[in-house]
């Protein structure tokens, strides 16, 4: 099934004004959908939809306190929706909406929606680097960094869910929707990618008690590690709370930087994720600090060696 990945994640929030400020400061562009709903979009149109948690137009909440209300997935074309409808109608109620999209619940009670993707095709360069032994990627006089450089989320990358029953959720996504497992962190869970996306993962599942079911984090792809660091540094300077990072994961090789949010989930900037095809054989490693990252750094105030008794290099 030619599923591409998450187009939108929908939340019913406690603190609407705080969430709006947060999402805009994170680098997403606000688009008012109606009286009570806002989409905050990345450059390709994917993003996060928020509404007040009491909004009747939201799908039913989870039984936990988690604010995630729906995951909206993009597929390549209408024929994929027909395929999904045929498969899902075997054992559950599927609602066909007037725009052709489908709504149903997965085997754990998460609300899902599938639509022909709204992603706009992006055409912009990745971060360019120069290194001895390889052709220069930046032209002479083309600078690597500037104070006002853009560092905006390009695309919704992945969603991570706390799930009480791993077997159920993995067989639902793999056997019914055609996802493949790319790697496994034993003790936590597997990384998955759908058939029409070569990213290392659009999903990661973490085994957890039932009272925790919900979204753990979501991530947006940046243009490269420098953009990720610049965006994260600017976000910290606006007063937001770093949770983990910056660093670089091992599985997926993506750079990461996680922040707390008023939506009760982590928001992650990620960059430079591995790509895979069907010849890839999933690896397995025990979950923990060693398997989670190749290195981990921490933000600090800008500093420079200067002004010491030796004279240093200070101005």
């Amino acid at each position: 099934m030619r599923i591409i990945g998450p187009d939108y994640l929908v939340f019913g929030v406690d603190d609407l004004e705080g969430s709006k400020t947060y999402l805009e400061d994170f680098g997403l562009k606000p688009v008012q959908l109606d009286d009570t709903g806002w989409l905050y979009e990345a450059l390709d149109g994917t993003g996060v939809i928020i509404r007040p948690k009491s909004d009747p137009s939201l799908p039913a909440p989870l039984e936990t306190k988690n604010m995630l209300r729906q995951q909206v997935y993009g597929v390549e074309d209408a024929s994929v929706l027909d395929e999904i409808e045929a498969e899902m109608s075997k054992d559950r109620r599927v609602t066909r909406l007037s725009d052709g999209s489908l709504e149903f619940k997965d085997d754990l009670g998460f609300e899902l929606r599938f639509q022909v993707t709204i992603r706009r095709e992006l055409s912009m360069p990745a971060e360019k680097i120069n290194a001895p032994g390889a052709p220069a990627q930046r032209a002479p006089n083309e600078l690597g960094v500037t104070d006002d450089m853009a560092a905006l989320p390009r695309s919704l990358s992945h969603v991570v869910l706390f799930v009480p029953d791993m077997e159920k959720v993995v067989s639902f996504f793999c056997d019914r929707l055609g996802f493949v497992v790319t790697d496994v962190l034993t003790g936590a869970g597997p990384f998955l990618r759908p058939q029409a996306n070569d990213d290392h993962h659009t999903h990661f599942f973490i085994r957890t008690p039932a009272y925790m079911q919900g979204c753990e984090h979501l991530a947006f792809h940046m243009g490269g590690p420098t953009e990720l660091m610049v965006a994260g540094d600017r976000f910290v300077r606006k007063g937001y709370q770093s949770f983990w990072g910056p660093g670089r994961h091992k599985f997926g090789s993506n750079w990461f930087w996680y922040f707390n949010s008023p939506l009760g989930v982590h928001f992650e900037y990620d960059a430079d994720m591995d790509k895979h095809d069907d010849t890839w054989v999933a690896r397995e490693a025990p979950n923990g600090p060693e398997a989670s990252q190749i290195f981990l750094l921490q933000w600090r105030e800008k500093w420079a060696p200067s002004g010491g008794p030796e004279g240093g290099s200070g101005a």
Partner: peptide, 25 residues
């Protein structure tokens, strides 16, 4: 242990009734 606010000084839930960890609620 990990830090709990989502923004500087944002330690309470929306109603101000509890201290909240904004990592997972």
């Amino acid at each position: 242990g990990t830090p709990m606010a989502w923004r500087k000084d944002a330690y309470l839930d929306a109603e101000g009734a509890h201290i909240a960890c904004h990592a997972h609620g």
